[in-house]
């Protein structure tokens, strides 16, 4: 019925651009046993750089676009509460559709490549970031907003000088979740022909060294982005670390 397992048809679709080369270099027997081969890893580490760069690009672009869209939507919905339900429902459906399915649903319309991958990746960030921005803005103490208005800050000043700064921890939390999620989903972007670290992983699933290096880079990238957002947030919100009297 299927016979899907097997590397030939898989390679034909996925791992283009990633040339399998296991024979060259040291520790040939370890390599032919599909083992964990430090020597091979050292020799071939540079071949993972291009997919890694691509992965970073996919992730960062998706986050930037996703953040712009959902942040804008959240600011609109903050004053027009009725917008929240439809936005959450719509982005919720996008969030639910499996990424692999979405890639292939988009292929006939946008074709293979970066654009298709980005549309899908962006659509997964929307719910997460939107929800956290709205929750963060809702969490600003009402007496603080009242005092700000009472002192003569206009709507825009209240939003940018009081509400958004105070919502930053929650916004950053959303961005962190979106970042790690997007790194994970970007590892499937090669199905849409957009490269990334999924390419080398998929090209040689049985070779432990390969899976470890490419998978490890994925995990490290997720952690690095998570920590980066956390660091920026801490820099921007010094008051959250003030020790109470």
């Amino acid at each position: 019925m299927s016979g899907a397992l097997g590397s030939i048809p898989l390679l034909a679709q996925g791992g283009e651009g990633f040339v399998r080369n296991r024979e060259s270099g040291s520790g040939a027997s370890c390599v032919s046993d599909d083992g964990v081969c430090p020597a091979w890893i050292v020799d071939h580490f540079d071949r993972y750089m291009e997919p890694l760069g691509r992965h970073v690009l996919l992730t960062v672009v998706a986050l930037a676009i996703g953040f712009s869209i959902s942040f804008t939507l959240a600011l609109l919905a903050h004053r027009r509460r009725w917008l929240i339900a439809p936005v959450v429902q719509l982005t919720g459906i996008l969030y639910t559709i499996p990424s692999l399915a979405l890639f292939f649903l988009l292929l006939p319309i946008t074709g293979r490549g970066f654009l298709t991958a980005e549309i899908a990746l962006v659509s997964y960030t929307l719910l997460i970031i939107f929800r956290n921005v709205v929750t963060g803005l809702d969490g600003v103490p009402s007496d603080v907003v009242d005092a700000a208005r009472g002192m003569g800050l206009n709507d825009r000043q209240v939003l940018w000088r009081v509400e958004i700064p105070l919502a930053l921890p929650e916004i950053a939390a959303g961005l962190r979740i979106a970042a790690t999620t997007t790194v994970g989903l970007a590892s499937l972007a090669f199905f849409a022909g957009a490269g990334g670290l999924g390419d080398p992983i998929y090209a040689d699933l049985n070779f432990k060294s390969n899976v470890l290096v490419a998978g490890g880079l994925c995990v490290l990238l997720a952690i690095a982005l998570d920590l980066l957002v956390l660091a920026v947030q801490r820099l921007l919100t010094p008051w959250t670390r003030a020790v109470p009297a």
Binding site: G3, L10, Q13, T96, I97, L100, F104, L105
Partner: peptide, 30 residues
Amino acid sequence: VTLGDPIISQSVYGDAGKLAAAIVVALLAV
């Protein structure tokens, strides 16, 4: 062999099969 099979082994199922499976998976999740 799950609903992902037609998506991944395009050579057997063709473009229509790939898209069909994507639709069914999306519906299943929703």
